[in-house]
Design a binder for these strands. Structure first.
Lengths: 209, 209
DNA sequence: GTCTATACGAGGATAGAC
DNA sequence: GTCTATCCTCGTATAGAC
C-alpha cells in the first residue's frame, strides 16, 4: 500500500488535501476539478489551501513526484539482474509480472495515480515524461537486459531480447489501461487477471520449450 | 482521410467550430478548453457558436458520434470473414493489421479523435463506452472469429482463438497509445512502425509454422 | 447567422484579522 | 493555520438588434 507521507503526522491538512485531490483528479481530471471543490471535501476554506500549496498546479506536481518515486521502486535496479537470475528460474522471473500487475491494481491509491497520469499525459509534459521514461523506457530496458542475460546463459531460446521484452510487456500495458477503465464503473476484472496469467503462461512456454 | 461533413457545404461555420474544437480538445482536453477559445480561433463571438451547437457538450457529443461512425467502418462485418479468408492467406490477413495501424496514424484528424477519446474516457461515460465496445470488444470479437475460422480449416496451428486475438491485438493497442503521445512532441515514430511490423511477423511465424 | 450587451456563477488567488 | 472578505478574470449561456 502506498503511504502518501510515510512516518509524518498521520492526517495533516496537507495530506488530506493531497488525498482528496488524488480522489477527484483521478475521476474528473485536473482541469475539471476546482480548488473550491477540493477544500470543500477537506472541510477548509479555499484560502487555507494556499498555506499548504502555492498553487493548484503544485498539488498536481506533488502527485507527479509521488508517482515517480513509487514507479522508481517498482523494479529492481538493472545491475541486480544477474544476481536475481542466478537464483530464479526464467519461469519464476516471468511469473513475477503477474505479481507486479496484481500489486498495482490491488492498491487503490496507486490505481488513482495511474489514472491521473493517463489522463494528464496528453496535456501535461511532466506526466508525459514520467510515462515515457519511468514506465515505457524503464520497463523495456529492464526486461531487455533480463532476456539478454537469459539468452546468453542459454536458459531460454535465442530470440531477440528487445522483441521478447516487447512481446512480454506491451500486452500487459493494454490490460492495465483496460483495468483502470473497468474499475471506474465498478465492473468485474477477474477476466483481466486471468488474461495476464494466461499471457505470461503462453509467453513462458514459447521462450522455454 | 476523414471528412467531417462529407459532401456538405465545404467550410461552413459549424464545420470550422468542429475542426477547431477537435484541434484544441485533442491537446488540452475538453475541460481545459473554453467556448471563448474555440470561437476566437474560428473568428466569431461566443454567442454565435450557440447557433450551431446547443451547448459546449454538444460539440463533444458530435465528436464522439464522428469517431463511432469511423470506428464502425474500420473492420469488415464479421459475417464477411469467411469470404475474406477464402481469398486471403492467413499471412496476408494478419499483415493487414499493419495497414490498419498505418491508416489510422497517417490521418491527422483520426489521430486527434483518438487522443480526445483517450483523454475523456476516464471522465466521460460515453467515451468509455465507445472505447470499450467499438475498440476493445469489437476488435477482439472480430479477430477471435477470424482465428476460429482459420483454426477450423487447419490453416494455422490449433491454438485458442481468443488468446490468439489477444496476443495479436493488445500489443498494437499499446503502440497506438505510445504513438499518440510521441506525436504531441513531434518525435520520431518510425521505430513504432517497425515494432508493429516485427510483432506481426513474429506472431505470424508462431501461428503458421 | 452574427453581433453587442449582459447575466451571473465559478475560477484561481491574495490581504489581513484572529 | 484558518477564517472572512475581496479581486478580477473566465466560464457558459441568453436576449434582442441588425
Amino acid at each position: 500500500m502506498v503511504e502518501l507521507f510515510p512516518s509524518k503526522e498521520p492526517t495533516s491538512t496537507k495530506q488530506k488535501i493531497l488525498e482528496t485531490a488524488i480522489d477527484l483528479f483521478s475521476v474528473n481530471g485536473y482541469s475539471a476539478v476546482s480548488v473550491r471543490e477540493i477544500t470543500k471535501h477537506v472541510g477548509i476554506k479555499e484560502s487555507a489551501m494556499y498555506n499548504h500549496f502555492k498553487t493548484k498546479d503544485e498539488i498536481l506536481d506533488t502527485i507527479f513526484d509521488l508517482f515517480r518515486n513509487i514507479q522508481k521502486r517498482a523494479l529492481p535496479p538493472i545491475d541486480k539482474l544477474e544476481a536475481i537470475l542466478a537464483v530464479q528460474s526464467p519461469q519464476d522471473f516471468l511469473a513475477q509480472g503477474f505479481e507486479n500487475f496484481r500489486r498495482t491494481v490491488e492498491d487503490p491509491v496507486l490505481v488513482k495515480l495511474w489514472r491521473i497520469l493517463n489522463i494528464e499525459q496528453y496535456r501535461d509534459a511532466r506526466a508525459r515524461q514520467i510515462i515515457r521514461q519511468e514506465v515505457y523506457v524503464g520497463t523495456i530496458a529492464f526486461l531487455e537486459e533480463a532476456f539478454r542475460l537469459m539468452v546468453d546463459k542459454g536458459r531460454i531460446k535465442p530470440l531477440e531480447p528487445r522483441m521478447l521484452a516487447f512481446e512480454y510487456q506491451y500486452p500487459i500495458f493494454s490490460i492495465m489501461t483496460e483495468y483502470l477503465l473497468l474499475k471506474i464503473d465498478d465492473q468485474d476484472t477477474t477476466d483481466l487477471d486471468e488474461l495476464v496469467k494466461a499471457h505470461i503462461q503462453t509467453f513462458t512456454q514459447q521462450v522455454t520449450t
